[in-house]
């Protein structure tokens, strides 16, 4: 019987305890953030939407190589010698037309691994996180500043230049071969006549020497000091440098996104 009354007492008193808690919560400040109107403060150095500052991009393809999910596609075309592409803000000379720089943000895993290798710090992650699209195609961001026609033209130019260079090289090789053959023939015929055959053999060799630097990839030569920085991360003794590289683009991202909205 006492259990019965105890139960009733417990029932009423515990109900009142709960009622008091909810009553007090009536006057507690709400915790709702009315999202589209007000937003959470985003921590600095967040990794969200990628952005590429094409003014600084030299088309070195380092970011695309670093990407673990292959969401960056870069196509470049070598600029003709008479074309002047200007310099990046870090002082590197641009030698490639970036005909295609696509980031499929739908594939992006927001790891940020593309940011540190960039020699000019032109690719970075912004705090923008609202970029939903109705169409998945719209999530492929095309950063190339060239129109498709321009891109096609530049590619064609580069190919033509390459073909010309190759033809020249082939011709030079041919001439060299010819010269060597002539030389051999001359030697065979009359060793005393060597002085007459020499200039003929030198000319093609000089031509081949001229084309040689152009055949190398332009950025590799130019970026040689900068490119050394990227592998530093892999090097065990120099690893303390790596975080420093991380910091720079992130801080850059925070400052630049204000402009990008």
């Amino acid at each position: 019987m006492s259990g019965y009354f105890k139960d009733i007492y417990a029932g009423i008193s515990t109900a009142l305890v709960g009622m008091r808690i909810t009553w007090n919560h009536l006057f507690v400040k709400n915790v709702t953030i009315q999202y589209p109107d007000e937003k959470h403060d985003i921590p600095e150095r967040v990794r969200n939407r990628l952005y590429v500052n094409m003014d600084d991009c030299i088309g070195c393809d380092q970011c695309a190589k670093a990407c673990p999910v292959n969401c960056i596609t870069i196509e470049t075309a070598k600029a003709l010698p008479e074309e002047e592409l200007g310099e990046t803000s870090t002082g590197n000379r641009k030698r490639l037309w970036v005909t295609q720089f696509d980031i499929d943000i739908a594939k992006c895993c927001f790891c940020g691994l593309c940011v540190p290798p960039c020699p000019t710090e032109c690719i970075f992650m912004t705090p923008v996180f609202e970029f939903s699209e109705y169409n998945r195609e719209d999530l492929i961001y095309r950063f190339s500043t060239l129109t498709p026609e321009e891109a096609a033209e530049k590619t064609e130019n580069a190919e033509r230049a390459k073909a010309e260079a190759e033809a020249k090289k082939a011709a030079a090789a041919e001439a060299k071969k010819k010269a060597a053959a002539e030389k051999a023939a001359a030697e065979k015929a009359a060793p005393s006549e060597q002085a007459g055959g020499a200039p003929a053999a030198d000319a093609p060799a000089a031509a081949a020497k001229d084309t040689a630097p152009k055949q190398d990839d332009a950025p590799k030569q130019d970026d040689a000091p900068k490119q050394d920085d990227a592998p530093k991360q892999d090097d065990a003794p120099k690893q303390d440098d790596a975080p420093k590289q991380d910091d720079a683009p992130a801080a850059d991202a925070a400052s630049t996104t204000d402009n990008n909205g």
Binding site: T22, H25, L26, V28, K29, N30, V31, T32, Q34
Partner: peptide, 13 residues
């Protein structure tokens, strides 16, 4: 509204 306030929410706004 009352349920929202008791749960520290705003309710319909």
């Amino acid at each position: 509204k009352i349920s929202a306030w008791m749960q520290d929410r705003l309710g319909p706004m």
